[in-house]
Simulated scan of single mutants.
Amino acid sequence: MTTRKLLLLPGDGIGPEAMGEVSKIIAILNDEAAAGFETETGLVGGAAYDAHGAAISDADMARATAADAVLFGAVGGPKWDAVPYDLRPEAGLLRLRKEMALFANLRPAICYPALAEASSLKRELVDGLDILIVRELTGGVYFGSPKEIVDLGNGQKRGVDTQVYETYEIERIARAAFEAARTRHGKVTSMEKRNVMKTGVLWNEVVSRIGRDEYPDVRLEHMLADAGGMQLVRAPKQFDVIVTDNLFGDMLSDIAAMLTGSLGMLPSASLGAVDAATGTRKALYEPVHGSAPDIAGKGIANPIAMIASFAMMLRYSFAMTREADALEAAIAGVLEAGTRTGDIMAPGCRQVGTTEMGDAVAAALRGTLAA
């Protein structure tokens, strides 16, 4: 039997609660599908800082690098607001992305028909929505140098963040977007700010060349990122795959998430390059929502984004398409039956907590796999 080694990094806030529901799914797949998952659990974020004085320890970083895939919860919270900048909880996630070379972040924004009324937009704008945002993850302003605050004297300071992109970084994320579009509806929208940023000019130039020379079968359009944000809330179903840089991708994917009704519904995958020798790739999967410290420990968090992130893991890391389809169908079925956590509650539905939602999805999955 194939052994698949997973590292679970629950993190802070609601991360451990949501991760606990995925453990039920893993157990079912081991029982019903002989999946062979073996799990280790590590610390990241504030939890790691409290234990080790760092946002992730060298030992857990080594485990992440050695694992077949990493499932990540959430990090941060007011408890660690005074922690030095380089040791802040979010530094653990940035280190994972950088050292695992996870350059491509895939964030689907799917509006389940049962949740169309939960969106802040009218039903007709979001019913059937299926967008994939492909965000460059290891370059741009988050990693550019210099990044500093300089004391100028006389009570004045200067903050500096540097936006840097090289050709190869844009090429590889563009190819990831075009490849994804080939499996969907054949359209890529590239978003940048070429009107005011030199990196935007280069981005536009490189994506245009890759599209023209390597993917002539995929339709490519360009849009300024601020206009893209406006169009996401005006007519979101015009988009198929959106490719953009690290900063704009962070913001645009959160906008897209809210179109679906709740941040608690959105998964993501962060992927490295495919190893030519082994055919495998480093990968980390995480829900788009944060640590939500205001509801942590109350048993009311929505675990669906974490469970759906695990479904993406099945699909992208292990080619377990049947099981991924079954898990996503289980989520849709539970929602269609009217089972809801508070963030997606609607009249006539039954409100449940984190554990009950996880139990419902697990039962639906078990029934599908046994059929």
Rank of each mutant, 00 (worst) to 15 (best):
L266F: 11
A18H: 05
D240W: 12
R234E: 08
Q163M: 07
A74V: 13
Y85V: 08
A371W: 01
Y49N: 01
K157G: 12
L137K: 03
P108Q: 13
A48L: 00
T138F: 06
K122H: 02
L266D: 09
G20Y: 04
G36F: 15
F239K: 05
V288L: 11
E32T: 12
G76S: 09
V288E: 00
G229I: 06
H289V: 09
T339A: 04
G264Q: 02
D81F: 15
R366V: 07
L125K: 13
D68T: 09
T65D: 10
V44D: 00
E179L: 10
T138M: 07
S291W: 06
G155M: 10
D50V: 02
G13F: 06
G299F: 05
L71M: 09
V288M: 00
A35R: 14
V160P: 03
E179W: 06
A257M: 11
R315M: 10
A69D: 14
K298C: 01
S253L: 10
I110N: 05
P293V: 05
V352F: 03
S268Q: 09
A346Q: 15
G92Y: 08
E205K: 08
I131G: 04
I56H: 03
D68N: 13
F310M: 01
G20E: 13
L247Y: 12
V160H: 06
Y112K: 00
V352W: 02
A277M: 05
D294A: 10
G140H: 11
D127G: 00
V188L: 07
V201A: 10
M258C: 14
L71W: 15
M306C: 08
F72A: 02
V361T: 08
D325Q: 13
M313N: 08
L115C: 01
A337D: 10
R107K: 13
G290M: 09
N30M: 13
D245Q: 14
R340Y: 06
V274C: 01
E205I: 03
K79P: 09
L263V: 09
F318M: 12
V141Y: 02
I210C: 03
A27K: 15
R219S: 10
G46K: 03
I170P: 07
T341L: 00
A301G: 00
G77F: 12
I295L: 03
D58M: 11
L152V: 06
D343K: 00
V70E: 05
I133T: 13
E286D: 08
I344G: 04
E40M: 04
T162S: 14
D226F: 07
K122P: 00
G77A: 10
R350W: 09
A371N: 09
S23L: 09
A311S: 14
V164D: 08
